[in-house]
Simulated scan of single mutants.
Amino acid sequence: MTTPRTRLHGAKAIVTGGVGGIGAAIVRRLLEEGADVIVLDLHTDAAATRAASIGAAYLPVDLADPAQTRSVVQAAIEALGGVDLLVNAAGVFRALALLDINDAEWDRVLNINARATLTTMQAVAPSMMAQDHGRIVNLASMAAKSGGAMEAHYAASKSAVVALTRAAAIEWGPRGVTVNAICPGYVLTEMGAGTRTEEQIAQWTQRSPLGRLGEPDDVAGLVAYLATDGGYITGQALNVTGGMVMH
């Protein structure tokens, strides 16, 4: 029998946005279970330090630049000697009223959250299909299903992630590649902490039948399952919302 610490032994994984919050929890979980992981994130000294502290290799990338993204993903595949798992955990969020969303703000959110997801999937798919096996997990959001005031462009970007996931699952499934999205509820990470007051946090907590907010490890556990035992699951947008959303 395999153990949770060995079931990903030798698996080659690429994780975007893996230096903080949910992404870092995913990277830690994959490493604990034996995977070789390369993190793709923005070029900062802090990102390099955090990746090293987790124990992952790190390649800097600006995911808003499609050409650079393709090049860096290819470099990661070459460094790993292949790719078995891609996790798209990178994302940006800013609370903004619908009437205040200008072209630049729309493009920033859609380019990082949606277009970069398409670009990285396109970059790994040929390698995965060549070996007739691969797992892709895209982080969407509860907002993809419920929408929400002050986050229209974010919700739109995450809805696009769900649509991309379903299309890829249909097209690449015959070649052994599963593609799924995870829709986290409110998880208090660095990105979210600065956008909610204590009163808002209490309100969100009350919305969950479990009476608590999500934790990064709640999402990381599902990623690990999809990467291993979830081989007959594809094209899904799976909620990790503590019951805040049930569809």
Rank of each mutant, 00 (worst) to 15 (best):
Q68T: 04
W172T: 00
Y225P: 02
L213D: 00
Y186N: 01
T16F: 11
I112C: 10
Q68G: 14
Q203Y: 07
P4T: 03
K12L: 15
E171T: 12
R175F: 14
K158P: 06
D103I: 07
V87T: 00
L40H: 01
A13V: 04
M191Y: 00
A48Y: 06
G211T: 08
A46P: 05
T195I: 14
T117F: 11
A48E: 13
R212S: 02
V161I: 13
S141C: 13
M121N: 11
A193Y: 05
A160R: 03
V73H: 01
G17H: 02
G148M: 10
A89P: 03
A227W: 00
L8P: 01
M142P: 04
L42R: 15
H247M: 15
V39H: 06
A123P: 03
I26C: 07
V39L: 11
A130P: 03
G176M: 04
S159D: 12
Q74F: 08
K145H: 15
N88P: 04
V161R: 00
L98P: 07
M129W: 07
L139Y: 08
M128T: 05
I182C: 05
D41R: 01
A156C: 10
A48Q: 11
M142I: 15
S127F: 13
Q200H: 04
V124E: 04
G18E: 02
G214D: 01
A130Y: 08
G194D: 07
Y154P: 00
T3K: 14
N113Y: 09
S127V: 11
A25E: 08
A125S: 12
P126Y: 13
P4I: 07
R7Y: 13
A56M: 04
G10Y: 14
Y58K: 03
V87W: 03
A227D: 02
D103N: 10
G20R: 12
I170C: 14
G194H: 03
A25P: 06
L42T: 10
V162A: 09
V15P: 02
S157H: 08
N88H: 13
V83N: 03
I182S: 02
G221Q: 09
N102R: 11
A47I: 04
A89K: 00
L59W: 04
P184C: 07
A76G: 05
V124A: 01
S159G: 15
G148R: 08
H133S: 14
Q122R: 12
T6W: 10
S146C: 14
A25L: 11
A168D: 03
G34F: 10
R115G: 07
G10N: 14
A48R: 13
A51P: 02
N180G: 07
Q236N: 06
I54S: 02
P174R: 09
L30V: 05
G230Y: 03
Y58P: 01
A13R: 00
T16N: 10
D218F: 06
I136L: 09
A47V: 03
V72M: 07
A181V: 05
P126V: 11
A156V: 09
A125Y: 09
T119K: 01
N102A: 13
R50G: 08
R70M: 08
G211H: 09
S141G: 12
L42F: 14
N111S: 15
G231W: 05
A95L: 15
T178S: 08
H133Y: 14
L30Q: 00
R207C: 06
R50W: 12
